[in-house]
């Protein structure tokens, strides 16, 4: 018996990177999965890959912006129409458009970061629950936070602020949605993705040396923990953020 057989999951920001790795893992473990992302062509490629890997007609893509209410409504409606239910929501889509000190940040950019990384997660969760997530047993929500939200993160300060808020939102939602829906988060450190590239490209060895496990993360490193937290194996885990960072956050800095 696979952990996600008969279950339906929706993963935002799933055309590549961590979101794709999570979707791939859920499909491999039996779930039907709806992927969202901004671009139809990269989404189509993701769907083709997953369909080819599993020869299964269990994958659907809906293109749109994660902070667009119409897209959100359409994606949830498409999920119910195609698969008839929604058991798991993965708030994975996130942006990091600016670098530099938080005191110098462009406020329009800051509002955009918070809209996508925090407010959208709340709205997707609210609407998913309204659409029936939690009506059956075993429902869960997972958000992709970041180790950048655990402490000061020079250079990506605004991103860190948004991810700290997302972790607290996780705890708030866990308490409010208990006992029907479990809500947890993962907090990865630097992972080999397009979003993370600026943090390691050209100096990967130097970055990896700061990690006790001696390497930066790969998207698949996040998929295993994500699947665990979404599954019934974590049936008594809620409100938690699981740090996935090769030990970086407990190692001394400098």
């Amino acid at each position: 018996m696979q952990r996600f057989e008969g279950r339906v999951a929706l993963v935002t920001g799933a055309s590549r990177g961590i979101g794709f790795a999570i979707a791939q893992r859920l499909v491999a473990e039996g779930a039907s999965v709806v992927l969202t992302g901004r671009k139809q062509d990269t989404l189509d490629a993701a769907v083709a890959t997953l369909t080819a890997e599993h020869g299964a007609d269990r994958v659907l893509a809906v293109a749109g912006k994660v902070d667009d209410p119409e897209h959100r409504t359409a994606a949830i409606a498409a999920t119910l129409e195609r698969f008839g239910r929604l058991d798991h929501l993965v708030n994975n889509a996130g942006i990091n458009p600016v670098y530099g000190p938080v005191l110098e940040i462009d406020l329009t950019a800051l509002h955009k970061i918070l809209a996508v990384n925090v407010v959208a997660a709340l709205e997707w969760t609210r609407d998913a629950v309204a659409a029936g997530l939690g009506a059956g047993g075993g429902a869960s929500v997972l958000s992709t936070a970041s180790a950048a939200g655990l402490a000061a993160s020079p250079g990506i300060a605004a991103y860190g602020v948004s991810k700290a808020a997302l972790m607290n939102l996780t705890a708030q939602l866990a308490v409010e949605l208990a006992p029907r829906v479990r809500v947890n988060a993962v907090a990865p450190a630097v992972v080999r993705t397009r979003l993370g590239a600026a943090l390691y490209e050209g100096r990967e060895q130097q970055v990896a040396a700061r990690y006790p496990l001696g390497r930066i993360g790969e998207p698949v490193d996040v998929a295993g923990p994500a699947a665990f937290l979404l599954s019934d194996d974590a049936a008594w885990v809620t409100g938690q953020t699981l740090v996935i960072d090769g030990g970086a956050s407990v190692a001394p800095t400098g």
């Binding site: 490193d221 295993g224 923990p225 885990v237 809620t238 699981l242 996935i244 960072d245 030990g247």
Partner: peptide, 14 residues
Amino acid sequence: SAYVTGTELVVDGG
């Protein structure tokens, strides 16, 4: 959990 080390996993029903 190949990339998980030094972390805390709380299993407490919230």
